[in-house]
Write a protein that binds this DNA or RNA. Structure first.
Length: 151
RNA sequence: AAGGCAGGCUGUUCUGUCGCGUUCCGUUCACACGGAAUGAGGAAAGUCCGGGCAACACAGAGCAACAUACUUCCUAACGGGAAGCCGGCUGUUUUCAGCUGAGAGAAAGUGCCGCAGAAAACAACCGCCUAAGUGCAGUUUCGGCUGCACCGGCAAGGGUGAAAACGUGGGGUAAGAGCCCACGGCUUUUGCGGGUGACCGCAAAAGGGGGUAAACCUUAUGUGUUGAAAGGCCAAAUAUACCGGGGGCAGAGGGUUGCUCGCCCGAUCCCGGAGGGUAGGCCGUUCGAGGCGUCGCGCGAGCGACGUCCCAGAUAAAUGACAGAAGGCAUCCGUUCCGGAUGCAACAGAACCCGGCUUACAGGCCUGCCUUUUUU
RNA sequence: GGCUCCGUAGCUUAACUGAAUAGAGCAUCUGACUACGGAUCAGAAGGUUCCAGGUUUGAAUCCUGGCGGAGUCA
Protein backbone atom coordinates (compact mmCIF):
# COMPACT_ATOMS: atom_id res chain seq x y z
CA UNK A 1 0.00 0.00 0.00
CA UNK A 2 2.33 2.70 1.24
CA UNK A 3 5.35 1.35 -0.56
CA UNK A 4 8.17 2.72 -2.63
CA UNK A 5 9.74 -0.24 -4.36
CA UNK A 6 12.52 -0.36 -6.86
CA UNK A 7 10.08 -0.65 -9.77
CA UNK A 8 8.43 2.60 -8.75
CA UNK A 9 11.73 4.39 -9.26
CA UNK A 10 13.01 5.71 -12.53
CA UNK A 11 16.42 4.37 -13.39
CA UNK A 12 16.18 3.68 -17.09
CA UNK A 13 18.38 5.88 -19.21
CA UNK A 14 16.04 5.99 -22.25
CA UNK A 15 13.02 6.90 -20.20
CA UNK A 16 14.96 9.67 -18.50
CA UNK A 17 16.06 11.25 -21.75
CA UNK A 18 12.49 10.89 -23.04
CA UNK A 19 11.17 12.65 -19.95
CA UNK A 20 13.58 15.57 -20.11
CA UNK A 21 13.33 16.00 -23.90
CA UNK A 22 9.57 15.60 -24.44
CA UNK A 23 8.05 16.08 -20.99
CA UNK A 24 6.54 19.24 -19.55
CA UNK A 25 7.25 20.97 -16.28
CA UNK A 26 5.74 23.23 -13.63
CA UNK A 27 6.79 24.68 -10.31
CA UNK A 28 5.44 23.90 -6.90
CA UNK A 29 7.87 25.37 -4.34
CA UNK A 30 10.38 23.91 -3.55
CA UNK A 31 10.02 21.54 -6.48
CA UNK A 32 10.37 21.76 -10.21
CA UNK A 33 8.29 18.86 -11.47
CA UNK A 34 9.00 17.32 -14.85
CA UNK A 35 6.27 14.97 -16.07
CA UNK A 36 5.23 12.91 -19.06
CA UNK A 37 2.00 10.97 -19.51
CA UNK A 38 1.96 8.00 -21.83
CA UNK A 39 -0.60 5.51 -22.97
CA UNK A 40 0.54 1.93 -23.22
CA UNK A 41 0.46 2.19 -27.01
CA UNK A 42 2.78 5.19 -26.95
CA UNK A 43 5.14 3.38 -24.64
CA UNK A 44 5.28 0.45 -27.03
CA UNK A 45 6.10 2.80 -29.87
CA UNK A 46 9.20 4.06 -28.10
CA UNK A 47 10.34 0.59 -27.17
CA UNK A 48 9.26 -1.18 -30.33
CA UNK A 49 12.70 -1.33 -31.82
CA UNK A 50 13.70 -3.90 -29.21
CA UNK A 51 11.93 -6.33 -26.94
CA UNK A 52 8.43 -5.04 -26.43
CA UNK A 53 7.65 -7.44 -23.61
CA UNK A 54 10.42 -5.82 -21.56
CA UNK A 55 8.61 -2.51 -21.84
CA UNK A 56 5.55 -3.69 -19.98
CA UNK A 57 7.77 -5.40 -17.41
CA UNK A 58 9.26 -2.01 -16.66
CA UNK A 59 5.86 -0.71 -15.62
CA UNK A 60 4.68 -2.86 -12.76
CA UNK A 61 3.21 0.32 -11.29
CA UNK A 62 1.34 3.05 -13.14
CA UNK A 63 4.03 5.64 -12.41
CA UNK A 64 7.80 5.89 -12.19
CA UNK A 65 9.41 8.64 -10.23
CA UNK A 66 12.86 10.06 -9.58
CA UNK A 67 14.03 12.60 -7.04
CA UNK A 68 16.94 14.90 -7.75
CA UNK A 69 18.73 17.39 -5.53
CA UNK A 70 21.25 19.70 -7.12
CA UNK A 71 24.79 19.83 -5.85
CA UNK A 72 24.74 23.50 -6.77
CA UNK A 73 21.96 24.22 -4.30
CA UNK A 74 22.96 21.93 -1.43
CA UNK A 75 26.65 21.37 -1.02
CA UNK A 76 26.92 18.64 1.59
CA UNK A 77 26.20 15.04 0.68
CA UNK A 78 24.50 14.44 4.03
CA UNK A 79 22.02 17.23 3.46
CA UNK A 80 21.30 16.13 -0.12
CA UNK A 81 20.53 12.62 1.11
CA UNK A 82 18.31 14.05 3.81
CA UNK A 83 16.33 16.12 1.32
CA UNK A 84 15.86 13.15 -1.01
CA UNK A 85 14.70 10.95 1.85
CA UNK A 86 12.13 13.50 2.90
CA UNK A 87 10.81 13.74 -0.66
CA UNK A 88 10.57 9.99 -1.08
CA UNK A 89 8.78 9.64 2.24
CA UNK A 90 6.21 12.28 1.29
CA UNK A 91 5.68 10.77 -2.15
CA UNK A 92 5.26 7.31 -0.62
CA UNK A 93 2.50 8.49 1.65
CA UNK A 94 0.58 10.53 -0.89
CA UNK A 95 0.89 8.69 -4.17
CA UNK A 96 -2.12 6.38 -3.81
CA UNK A 97 -4.85 8.74 -4.99
CA UNK A 98 -2.69 9.54 -8.02
CA UNK A 99 -2.20 5.83 -8.74
CA UNK A 100 -5.87 5.03 -8.67
CA UNK A 101 -6.58 8.04 -10.88
CA UNK A 102 -3.98 6.89 -13.43
CA UNK A 103 -5.36 3.36 -13.43
CA UNK A 104 -8.86 4.65 -14.02
CA UNK A 105 -7.71 6.75 -17.01
CA UNK A 106 -5.45 3.94 -18.22
CA UNK A 107 -2.36 6.14 -18.43
CA UNK A 108 1.25 5.73 -17.39
CA UNK A 109 3.32 8.55 -15.85
CA UNK A 110 6.99 9.38 -15.68
CA UNK A 111 7.89 11.96 -13.05
CA UNK A 112 10.92 13.85 -11.77
CA UNK A 113 10.90 15.85 -8.55
CA UNK A 114 13.76 18.36 -8.70
CA UNK A 115 14.49 20.00 -5.39
CA UNK A 116 15.34 23.66 -5.90
CA UNK A 117 15.51 25.13 -2.40
CA UNK A 118 18.96 25.96 -1.06
CA UNK A 119 18.29 24.51 2.41
CA UNK A 120 16.44 21.63 4.00
CA UNK A 121 12.76 22.25 4.69
CA UNK A 122 10.81 20.52 7.46
CA UNK A 123 8.95 17.32 6.65
CA UNK A 124 5.53 19.01 7.02
CA UNK A 125 6.41 21.61 4.37
CA UNK A 126 7.72 18.97 2.00
CA UNK A 127 4.63 16.82 2.42
CA UNK A 128 2.32 19.76 1.77
CA UNK A 129 4.23 20.62 -1.38
CA UNK A 130 4.07 17.05 -2.62
CA UNK A 131 0.32 16.88 -2.01
CA UNK A 132 -0.23 20.08 -3.98
CA UNK A 133 2.01 18.82 -6.75
CA UNK A 134 0.09 15.58 -7.03
CA UNK A 135 -3.21 17.44 -7.22
CA UNK A 136 -1.78 19.61 -9.99
CA UNK A 137 -0.61 16.52 -11.80
CA UNK A 138 -4.14 15.20 -11.73
CA UNK A 139 -5.41 18.39 -13.37
CA UNK A 140 -2.67 18.22 -16.00
CA UNK A 141 -3.64 14.65 -16.80
CA UNK A 142 -7.26 15.64 -17.25
CA UNK A 143 -6.27 18.43 -19.69
CA UNK A 144 -3.99 16.05 -21.57
CA UNK A 145 -6.75 13.51 -21.98
CA UNK A 146 -9.37 15.97 -23.26
CA UNK A 147 -6.83 17.29 -25.75
CA UNK A 148 -6.12 13.76 -26.97
CA UNK A 149 -9.82 13.01 -27.32
CA UNK A 150 -10.40 16.19 -29.34
CA UNK A 151 -7.57 15.30 -31.65
C1' A B 1 36.84 23.18 43.48
C1' A B 2 37.54 26.45 39.19
C1' G B 3 40.41 27.79 34.83
C1' G B 4 44.23 26.82 31.07
C1' C B 5 47.59 23.61 28.13
C1' A B 6 48.98 18.71 26.14
C1' G B 7 47.62 13.62 25.11
C1' G B 8 44.03 9.61 24.83
C1' C B 9 38.91 7.65 24.71
C1' U B 10 33.75 8.37 23.55
C1' G B 11 30.44 10.36 19.86
C1' U B 12 22.76 9.55 23.24
C1' U B 13 19.68 5.13 24.49
C1' C B 14 14.96 2.43 24.46
C1' U B 15 9.74 1.34 22.73
C1' G B 16 5.69 1.49 19.07
C1' U B 17 3.48 2.36 13.85
C1' C B 18 4.58 2.89 8.57
C1' G B 19 8.66 2.33 4.98
C1' C B 20 13.79 1.07 2.31
C1' G B 21 18.62 -2.17 0.72
C1' U B 22 20.84 -7.11 1.13
C1' U B 23 20.89 -12.32 2.57
C1' C B 24 18.32 -16.78 4.05
C1' C B 25 13.72 -19.76 4.55
C1' G B 26 8.59 -20.83 2.94
C1' U B 27 4.42 -20.40 -0.81
C1' U B 28 4.20 -19.60 -6.19
C1' C B 29 4.95 -21.25 -13.45
C1' A B 30 6.33 -16.25 -12.70
C1' C B 31 5.41 -11.33 -10.97
C1' A B 32 4.90 -11.12 -6.01
C1' C B 33 3.63 -12.11 -0.87
C1' G B 34 4.85 -13.70 4.25
C1' G B 35 8.61 -14.55 8.07
C1' A B 36 13.59 -14.11 10.17
C1' A B 37 18.44 -11.93 10.37
C1' U B 38 21.29 -7.75 9.27
C1' G B 39 22.34 -2.62 7.63
C1' A B 40 27.53 3.98 7.85
C1' G B 41 32.21 6.71 10.45
C1' G B 42 36.11 8.41 13.68
C1' A B 43 36.85 10.92 10.45
C1' A B 44 33.21 7.01 5.67
C1' A B 45 35.93 13.60 3.92
C1' G B 46 40.48 15.79 1.51
C1' U B 47 42.96 12.41 -2.20
C1' C B 48 48.48 14.01 0.57
C1' C B 49 51.61 9.29 0.90
C1' G B 50 52.30 3.78 1.09
C1' G B 51 50.63 -1.15 -0.23
C1' G B 52 47.33 -5.32 -1.85
C1' C B 53 44.87 -6.60 -6.45
C1' A B 54 44.58 -6.20 -12.02
C1' A B 55 46.17 -5.21 -17.01
C1' C B 56 50.07 -3.66 -20.29
C1' A B 57 53.12 -10.76 -24.95
C1' C B 58 55.82 -6.60 -17.40
C1' A B 59 63.20 -9.65 -21.84
C1' G B 60 66.50 -5.60 -21.36
C1' A B 61 69.90 -0.90 -21.57
C1' G B 62 70.73 4.37 -21.22
C1' C B 63 69.04 9.32 -20.42
C1' A B 64 65.39 12.31 -18.33
C1' A B 65 61.79 13.18 -14.50
C1' C B 66 60.03 12.70 -9.53
C1' A B 67 60.50 11.67 -4.35
C1' U B 68 63.27 11.10 0.17
C1' A B 69 67.62 12.92 3.29
C1' C B 70 70.79 12.92 11.74
C1' U B 71 70.74 7.61 14.07
C1' U B 72 68.62 2.98 15.58
C1' C B 73 64.22 0.42 15.57
C1' C B 74 58.70 -0.80 14.25
C1' U B 75 56.09 -2.18 9.84
C1' A B 76 53.73 -5.77 4.09
C1' A B 77 55.29 -0.79 2.89
C1' C B 78 55.57 4.46 3.64
C1' G B 79 57.09 10.96 2.91
C1' G B 80 53.91 7.24 8.80
C1' G B 81 55.20 5.93 13.96
C1' A B 82 58.56 4.97 18.52
C1' A B 83 62.99 5.80 21.20
C1' G B 84 67.35 8.59 21.03
C1' C B 85 71.43 12.28 19.09
C1' C B 86 72.42 17.29 17.75
C1' G B 87 70.75 22.46 16.99
C1' G B 88 67.27 26.51 18.38
C1' C B 89 63.80 28.94 21.87
C1' U B 90 61.61 29.40 26.80
C1' G B 91 61.74 28.53 31.97
C1' U B 92 64.51 27.44 36.05
C1' U B 93 66.83 24.67 42.27
C1' U B 94 71.64 25.47 35.01
C1' U B 95 73.87 18.16 36.82
C1' C B 96 67.45 19.85 34.69
C1' A B 97 62.54 20.35 32.35
C1' G B 98 59.20 21.75 28.41
C1' C B 99 58.37 23.09 23.36
C1' U B 100 60.28 22.87 18.56
C1' G B 101 63.29 21.63 13.80
C1' A B 102 62.09 19.47 5.46
C1' G B 103 68.26 18.07 10.52
C1' A B 104 73.07 15.14 3.98
C1' G B 105 76.81 18.34 1.28
C1' A B 106 78.60 25.68 0.84
C1' A B 107 86.60 22.98 1.92
C1' A B 108 83.38 19.96 -6.09
C1' G B 109 81.51 23.80 -9.37
C1' U B 110 78.02 27.84 -11.19
C1' G B 111 74.65 31.72 -9.85
C1' C B 112 72.52 35.45 -6.46
C1' C B 113 73.12 38.86 -2.08
C1' G B 114 68.31 45.22 -3.79
C1' C B 115 68.81 50.06 -0.79
C1' A B 116 72.62 51.70 2.37
C1' G B 117 77.85 51.36 2.67
C1' A B 118 84.75 52.53 1.03
C1' A B 119 83.83 47.53 0.15
C1' A B 120 78.85 42.14 -0.46
C1' A B 121 83.77 38.35 -2.00
C1' C B 122 90.73 36.34 -5.96
C1' A B 123 88.64 43.46 -1.97
C1' A B 124 91.07 48.39 -1.47
C1' C B 125 87.51 54.29 -1.87
C1' C B 126 88.90 57.42 2.24
C1' G B 127 92.78 56.37 5.34
C1' C B 128 97.74 54.90 7.81
C1' C B 129 103.18 54.60 6.44
C1' U B 130 107.66 56.43 3.54
C1' A B 131 111.45 51.17 5.53
C1' A B 132 113.40 49.43 -0.05
C1' G B 133 113.61 52.12 -5.21
C1' U B 134 113.16 56.78 -8.47
C1' G B 135 112.63 62.10 -9.45
C1' C B 136 112.50 67.28 -7.84
C1' A B 137 113.38 71.15 -4.14
C1' G B 138 115.79 72.82 0.35
C1' U B 139 119.94 72.05 3.56
C1' U B 140 124.79 70.01 4.49
C1' U B 141 130.12 68.81 8.51
C1' C B 142 129.27 65.86 1.35
C1' G B 143 128.23 60.43 5.08
C1' G B 144 123.47 62.14 4.86
C1' C B 145 118.96 64.81 6.70
C1' U B 146 114.10 67.28 5.74
C1' G B 147 109.80 68.14 2.53
C1' C B 148 106.76 66.95 -1.85
C1' A B 149 105.50 63.52 -5.73
C1' C B 150 105.80 58.75 -8.08
C1' C B 151 106.40 53.68 -7.39
C1' G B 152 105.21 50.91 -3.28
C1' G B 153 103.71 48.61 1.74
C1' C B 154 99.31 47.76 5.06
C1' A B 155 94.44 46.25 6.36
C1' A B 156 94.30 48.91 12.47
C1' G B 157 89.98 53.09 12.07
C1' G B 158 85.67 54.61 8.78
C1' G B 159 77.89 56.99 11.00
C1' U B 160 76.17 51.39 6.75
C1' G B 161 73.96 46.69 6.80
C1' A B 162 70.60 40.66 8.05
C1' A B 163 75.73 39.70 7.17
C1' A B 164 82.24 43.14 7.04
C1' A B 165 87.19 38.73 6.31
C1' C B 166 88.26 34.68 14.45
C1' G B 167 87.43 37.73 19.80
C1' U B 168 90.23 40.11 24.07
C1' G B 169 95.02 41.55 25.89
C1' G B 170 100.26 41.92 25.01
C1' G B 171 104.59 41.79 21.91
C1' G B 172 106.18 43.42 17.27
C1' U B 173 106.60 47.25 13.16
C1' A B 174 108.01 52.62 8.90
C1' A B 175 102.81 51.65 9.37
C1' G B 176 100.47 47.19 10.24
C1' A B 177 98.48 42.29 10.19
C1' G B 178 97.34 35.10 13.69
C1' C B 179 103.07 37.97 11.93
C1' C B 180 104.27 35.95 17.09
C1' C B 181 102.58 34.81 22.29
C1' A B 182 98.65 33.94 26.34
C1' C B 183 93.50 32.91 27.20
C1' G B 184 88.89 31.79 24.70
C1' G B 185 86.05 30.05 20.49
C1' C B 186 85.52 27.45 15.61
C1' U B 187 86.81 23.83 11.50
C1' U B 188 89.39 19.49 9.72
C1' U B 189 92.42 15.21 10.55
C1' U B 190 94.60 11.50 13.70
C1' G B 191 94.85 8.59 18.24
C1' C B 192 92.60 6.62 22.83
C1' G B 193 88.07 5.59 25.71
C1' G B 194 82.40 5.01 25.84
C1' G B 195 78.00 3.88 22.72
C1' U B 196 74.65 -1.03 17.89
C1' G B 197 74.67 4.07 15.90
C1' A B 198 73.80 9.46 15.27
C1' C B 199 77.30 11.27 18.72
C1' C B 200 80.01 12.31 23.36
C1' G B 201 84.68 12.88 26.40
C1' C B 202 90.10 13.46 26.48
C1' A B 203 94.79 14.36 23.92
C1' A B 204 97.74 15.87 19.73
C1' A B 205 98.58 18.12 14.96
C1' A B 206 97.10 21.40 11.10
C1' G B 207 94.11 25.67 9.63
C1' G B 208 91.38 30.71 9.33
C1' G B 209 87.94 33.58 2.55
C1' G B 210 80.63 34.91 4.84
C1' G B 211 75.33 33.57 3.71
C1' U B 212 71.97 31.07 0.40
C1' A B 213 70.90 24.16 -1.77
C1' A B 214 62.05 25.31 0.39
C1' A B 215 68.63 28.75 -6.29
C1' C B 216 70.90 25.42 -10.05
C1' C B 217 73.42 21.42 -8.36
C1' U B 218 76.46 17.09 -6.02
C1' U B 219 76.17 12.54 -3.26
C1' A B 220 73.28 8.33 -1.47
C1' U B 221 68.72 5.57 -1.70
C1' G B 222 64.12 4.47 -4.12
C1' U B 223 60.35 4.59 -8.09
C1' G B 224 58.30 0.57 -14.99
C1' U B 225 53.29 2.75 -16.53
C1' U B 226 48.12 2.94 -15.77
C1' G B 227 44.08 2.62 -12.13
C1' A B 228 38.04 -1.04 -10.41
C1' A B 229 35.65 3.80 -15.69
C1' A B 230 41.70 -1.80 -13.88
C1' G B 231 40.29 -6.42 -15.92
C1' G B 232 37.23 -11.00 -17.36
C1' C B 233 32.49 -13.20 -19.11
C1' C B 234 27.43 -13.09 -21.11
C1' A B 235 23.37 -10.69 -23.66
C1' A B 236 21.58 -7.01 -27.19
C1' A B 237 22.66 -4.10 -31.62
C1' U B 238 25.09 -2.71 -36.04
C1' A B 239 27.48 0.31 -41.54
C1' U B 240 32.77 2.96 -42.55
C1' A B 241 26.95 2.92 -46.67
C1' C B 242 28.97 7.91 -48.54
C1' C B 243 32.23 12.58 -49.66
C1' G B 244 37.12 15.47 -49.48
C1' G B 245 42.57 15.55 -48.33
C1' G B 246 47.26 13.00 -47.07
C1' G B 247 50.78 8.68 -46.15
C1' G B 248 52.23 3.39 -46.88
C1' C B 249 55.75 -3.74 -47.56
C1' A B 250 62.53 0.65 -49.62
C1' G B 251 57.91 -0.66 -43.36
C1' A B 252 52.75 3.32 -42.79
C1' G B 253 50.81 2.32 -38.25
C1' G B 254 50.26 -0.19 -33.62
C1' G B 255 51.76 -2.94 -28.87
C1' U B 256 47.92 2.43 -22.22
C1' U B 257 55.82 3.15 -20.54
C1' G B 258 58.35 10.97 -20.81
C1' C B 259 62.56 10.27 -24.70
C1' U B 260 66.23 7.15 -27.43
C1' C B 261 67.67 2.22 -28.57
C1' G B 262 66.03 -2.66 -28.37
C1' C B 263 61.98 -6.42 -28.55
C1' C B 264 57.00 -8.02 -30.59
C1' C B 265 52.81 -7.54 -34.15
C1' G B 266 52.31 -5.75 -38.94
C1' A B 267 48.83 -4.08 -44.41
C1' U B 268 44.73 -0.46 -44.57
C1' C B 269 46.44 3.86 -41.71
C1' C B 270 45.64 9.15 -40.34
C1' C B 271 42.78 14.02 -40.59
C1' G B 272 38.10 16.58 -41.70
C1' G B 273 32.74 16.32 -43.06
C1' A B 274 28.18 13.63 -42.77
C1' G B 275 25.90 9.31 -40.48
C1' G B 276 24.44 4.22 -37.79
C1' G B 277 24.30 1.09 -33.15
C1' U B 278 24.73 0.45 -27.78
C1' A B 279 24.91 2.68 -22.97
C1' G B 280 21.84 -3.98 -19.86
C1' G B 281 23.45 -8.08 -16.56
C1' C B 282 27.14 -11.27 -13.87
C1' C B 283 32.10 -11.89 -11.79
C1' G B 284 35.95 -8.73 -9.76
C1' U B 285 33.10 -7.35 -4.49
C1' U B 286 33.78 -7.93 0.45
C1' C B 287 37.39 -13.34 5.33
C1' G B 288 40.78 -9.21 5.86
C1' A B 289 48.57 -7.16 6.93
C1' G B 290 40.13 -8.48 10.22
C1' G B 291 37.77 -7.29 15.10
C1' C B 292 37.38 -8.47 20.49
C1' G B 293 39.36 -10.75 25.10
C1' U B 294 43.36 -13.00 28.14
C1' C B 295 48.52 -14.00 28.90
C1' G B 296 53.73 -13.16 27.77
C1' C B 297 58.02 -10.08 25.63
C1' G B 298 59.70 -4.93 24.72
C1' C B 299 61.38 1.91 27.64
C1' G B 300 58.10 2.41 23.33
C1' A B 301 56.02 2.09 18.29
C1' G B 302 54.81 -2.90 18.24
C1' C B 303 55.40 -8.42 18.29
C1' G B 304 54.01 -13.52 19.67
C1' A B 305 50.65 -17.43 21.70
C1' C B 306 45.74 -19.06 22.90
C1' G B 307 40.48 -18.46 22.77
C1' U B 308 36.33 -16.38 20.38
C1' C B 309 33.32 -13.74 16.51
C1' C B 310 31.70 -13.11 11.09
C1' C B 311 30.39 -7.57 11.16
C1' A B 312 26.97 -2.90 4.93
C1' G B 313 27.48 -4.27 -0.16
C1' A B 314 23.97 -0.07 -2.96
C1' U B 315 24.56 1.18 -8.55
C1' A B 316 19.75 7.96 -10.68
C1' A B 317 22.71 4.78 -5.62
C1' A B 318 19.47 1.31 0.76
C1' U B 319 19.70 3.53 7.29
C1' G B 320 14.10 7.42 6.79
C1' A B 321 9.27 9.69 8.83
C1' C B 322 6.02 10.30 13.01
C1' A B 323 4.84 9.64 18.28
C1' G B 324 6.33 8.59 23.36
C1' A B 325 9.89 7.72 27.45
C1' A B 326 14.79 8.15 29.75
C1' G B 327 19.53 10.53 30.00
C1' G B 328 22.86 15.18 28.62
C1' C B 329 23.61 20.64 28.06
C1' A B 330 21.78 25.82 28.38
C1' U B 331 18.16 29.49 30.14
C1' C B 332 14.09 30.88 33.35
C1' C B 333 10.80 30.15 37.74
C1' G B 334 9.99 28.63 42.91
C1' U B 335 13.99 26.98 45.92
C1' U B 336 16.33 22.67 51.63
C1' C B 337 17.15 17.87 49.09
C1' C B 338 14.87 19.03 44.53
C1' G B 339 10.81 19.95 41.16
C1' G B 340 8.61 22.33 36.76
C1' A B 341 8.68 24.90 31.85
C1' U B 342 11.14 26.11 27.24
C1' G B 343 14.97 25.35 23.80
C1' C B 344 19.21 22.69 21.79
C1' A B 345 21.78 18.24 20.35
C1' A B 346 28.29 18.67 16.85
C1' C B 347 31.29 17.32 12.37
C1' A B 348 29.33 14.53 8.93
C1' G B 349 26.96 9.45 4.70
C1' A B 350 30.37 3.57 2.71
C1' A B 351 30.93 2.88 -3.46
C1' C B 352 37.44 -2.42 -4.78
C1' C B 353 39.98 -3.16 0.00
C1' C B 354 43.65 -2.06 3.77
C1' G B 355 47.93 1.00 6.76
C1' G B 356 48.97 6.06 7.83
C1' C B 357 48.80 11.57 7.41
C1' U B 358 45.89 16.04 7.16
C1' U B 359 41.44 18.69 7.90
C1' A B 360 36.15 19.31 10.46
C1' C B 361 33.81 18.33 15.30
C1' A B 362 28.49 20.17 20.29
C1' G B 363 28.83 17.64 24.69
C1' G B 364 31.00 13.99 28.08
C1' C B 365 35.00 10.86 30.48
C1' C B 366 40.25 9.68 31.85
C1' U B 367 45.62 10.89 32.57
C1' G B 368 49.72 14.43 33.27
C1' C B 369 51.48 19.48 34.12
C1' C B 370 50.68 24.73 35.48
C1' U B 371 47.89 28.86 37.97
C1' U B 372 44.29 30.71 41.62
C1' U B 373 41.11 30.00 45.94
C1' U B 374 39.24 27.21 50.26
C1' U B 375 39.77 23.38 54.19
C1' U B 376 42.99 20.16 57.16
C1' G C 1 36.52 6.96 -8.78
C1' G C 2 40.94 9.31 -11.00
C1' C C 3 43.69 13.50 -13.20
C1' U C 4 44.89 18.80 -14.46
C1' C C 5 44.66 24.00 -13.74
C1' C C 6 43.43 28.69 -11.38
C1' G C 7 42.53 32.38 -6.94
C1' U C 8 45.83 40.07 -6.96
C1' A C 9 41.32 47.14 -5.81
C1' G C 10 33.92 46.66 -6.98
C1' C C 11 35.24 44.39 -12.39
C1' U C 12 39.23 43.07 -16.21
C1' U C 13 44.14 42.34 -15.47
C1' A C 14 50.21 43.40 -14.89
C1' A C 15 54.31 42.35 -11.82
C1' C C 16 55.50 35.18 -10.97
C1' U C 17 63.83 34.21 -13.45
C1' G C 18 62.54 36.66 -4.67
C1' A C 19 64.27 43.18 -3.45
C1' A C 20 60.95 46.91 0.29
C1' U C 21 55.82 52.73 -2.15
C1' A C 22 51.95 45.83 -5.67
C1' G C 23 51.39 49.04 -11.58
C1' A C 24 47.44 50.05 -15.23
C1' G C 25 42.28 50.42 -17.67
C1' C C 26 36.92 50.64 -16.55
C1' A C 27 33.81 51.86 -12.43
C1' U C 28 33.49 55.33 -7.60
C1' C C 29 34.35 60.21 -5.22
C1' U C 30 36.06 65.54 -5.46
C1' G C 31 37.12 69.84 -8.40
C1' A C 32 37.30 72.46 -13.26
C1' C C 33 34.60 73.29 -17.92
C1' U C 34 28.68 74.01 -18.85
C1' A C 35 22.52 77.43 -17.96
C1' C C 36 22.15 71.80 -16.71
C1' G C 37 23.78 66.89 -17.99
C1' G C 38 27.13 63.86 -21.01
C1' A C 39 31.99 63.79 -23.02
C1' U C 40 36.80 65.91 -21.70
C1' C C 41 40.75 67.65 -18.21
C1' A C 42 43.03 67.57 -13.17
C1' G C 43 43.26 65.07 -8.54
C1' A C 44 41.94 61.54 -4.69
C1' A C 45 40.39 57.17 -2.36
C1' G C 46 40.13 52.00 -2.74
C1' G C 47 44.64 45.84 -1.56
C1' U C 48 44.69 40.75 4.88
C1' U C 49 47.95 39.68 -3.15
C1' C C 50 42.05 33.23 -0.96
C1' C C 51 43.67 31.39 4.33
C1' A C 52 47.44 29.36 7.94
C1' G C 53 52.37 28.01 8.80
C1' G C 54 57.58 27.75 7.17
C1' U C 55 62.46 28.93 4.32
C1' U C 56 65.11 33.74 3.65
C1' U C 57 67.98 39.65 6.01
C1' G C 58 63.46 40.12 2.91
C1' A C 59 57.72 36.29 0.01
C1' A C 60 52.30 38.32 -4.44
C1' U C 61 56.54 35.22 -6.15
C1' C C 62 59.74 29.56 -3.22
C1' C C 63 57.91 25.12 -0.01
C1' U C 64 53.96 22.51 2.94
C1' G C 65 48.89 22.05 4.50
C1' G C 66 43.91 23.86 4.09
C1' C C 67 39.58 26.66 1.62
C1' G C 68 37.06 27.98 -2.77
C1' G C 69 36.28 27.67 -8.13
C1' A C 70 36.83 25.72 -13.07
C1' G C 71 38.05 21.89 -16.62
C1' U C 72 38.84 16.83 -18.14
C1' C C 73 38.70 11.15 -18.55
C1' A C 74 33.78 5.68 -20.57
Amino acid sequence: MYTFKKDERLGNYRLQSLLFNQGKAFFQYPFRIQYLFLTKEELHQYFLCQQSDAASAVFQFPAKCLVSVSKRQIKKAVHRNKAKRLCREAYRKNKNTFYTFLKKKNYLAVLAFIYTADRILSYDDVEEAVQKAINKLGEKLREEQTRAVNR
